Computed example of a mutant assay.
Amino acid sequence: MNLLLFVFYLKFLYTTLHMANRDKNKKTLLELVKQPENSSCADCGATEPDWASYTLGVFVCLNCSGTHRNLSSISRIKSIRLDFWDDDLVQFMKAHGNGDAKDLYEKFVPVFYYQPQQHDCDVLREQWIRAKYERQEFTEQNKLRAYSSGVYEGVLWKKGKDNGQFLKRKFVLSEQDFSLKYYKEDESKGPKAVISVQTLNATFQPQKIGHAHGLQITYSVEDHTRNLFVYHESGQEIVNWFNAIRATRFAYLKTAFPTASNAELLPWVTRNYLKEGYMEKTGPSHREPFKKRWFILDSLDRKLLYFKTELDAVELGVIFIGTENHGYSVSECMPKATRGNKWKCGMAVETPDRQFIFMCEQERDRKEWMEALKFVISKPMLPQDYTTEANIRRRK
């Protein structure tokens, strides 16, 4: 009986010490993650990361921890709140942290390379993590990177303009003449299109395109906006294309604006659109039937573009969004005479030339559109914006 009591006592003592050690280590980790360098995810910047890689010494968010789990030979993940941490692992985290990892794994990130944020699509975040820790692309200053070689070429699946099918096309991006070319099956006939890098933009659109690696490439032809929708089966390859476009765009901007700083140029390399979605639109007299259109608000170019559908190659029209001092405003409205509209949340955009009436499906949609438009209207106009405004007015 005494032996049984002794064994029970030892088990009780072990459990008590184990729990005390668990609580102590958890407290240490929670203190570490409050330090400024550790208080956001090492990979996407999300606040208050709850996970950590005890082999890399970094604190990461839940979303990024999923990619780390797929790198099991490099990164081992634990929850800092739910899992038990041995003393040696806690000491490793204390000795390292996000700051040390950044100094090592991000030491030579090219200035044009896109570093994903919390709300970016999965493929961007995954390939950023793999580029840092698995391929170690940024640990050496002169490491060969295909996307910064000056020429990038390969095959992408491109959506056809008419039938909507995705077909393989060869693309060639060149820094020498600042162009993007793509070819049909018979390359001997020359490129199907030669696109100037001057107006080129690329943004990931997986939901719109219906593929996890979907990329939308936008450019201008004679002041009209055109879209290409492409994807690649490989996440690494499509992100390489994205960063190759950014590298070429950055080189072009450095040539076009030699006195501008990197910080001034980077927002123009590529950008996500401020707001996208369907609205109903009527004509100039407001007596024409409402028609459903896909709208894109480009806040940098101050353009509200509209298309028949979200996957149209060519715009139907464009509205310049200036400042309040120049006669632009947005407000709620309910037009008196409407035909064809199914949605009831009205919005009026005033310009010096005319009033545009739009109908949104939900009140939330109207609020989001109005906030986005007011944001653009509140921004001061740059010298190039006056040229854009004049070109759009001339098209009317």
Rank of each mutant, 00 (worst) to 15 (best):
Y113D: 12
R76S: 15
I357H: 07
G210S: 05
N2I: 13
S234Y: 02
Q35C: 06
E350K: 13
V151E: 09
P258I: 02
R249Q: 05
G317Q: 05
T259K: 09
E237K: 14
N262V: 10
T15M: 15
Q216E: 13
E350Y: 07
V221P: 00
A337Y: 12
K342A: 02
A212H: 15
K159E: 12
K102Q: 13
D120G: 03
L62D: 07
L382T: 14
V330F: 01
V109F: 04
T199L: 05
G190S: 08
A256I: 07
E371S: 10
A251I: 06
F8T: 13
S234A: 10
V123C: 15
G45V: 11
S188M: 02
L156P: 09
Q136K: 14
T309A: 06
Q141N: 11
E137L: 15
L89N: 07
L382I: 12
E222H: 12
Y105N: 11
P36T: 06
F250W: 08
F84L: 04
R366D: 05
V33K: 02
V314I: 12
K308W: 15
T16P: 05
V151Q: 09
Y105D: 09
G214T: 11
S73C: 10
Q136T: 10
L13F: 13
P191V: 05
M1V: 14
F257W: 14
Q117M: 11
R293V: 01
D177L: 03
S75C: 00
H232L: 04
G57Y: 02
H232W: 07
A263C: 01
Q165N: 15
N341T: 08
R145Q: 08
H18I: 05
A390E: 14
T199P: 04
N341P: 06
N243P: 08
D100S: 13
Y306C: 00
I392R: 05
D43P: 10
D120M: 09
I319G: 07
M381H: 04
T203H: 12
I319K: 01
D83I: 00
V123H: 02
V123D: 06
S148P: 03
L32A: 05
N98Q: 04
S174G: 06
R226G: 03
T55S: 14
P206C: 00
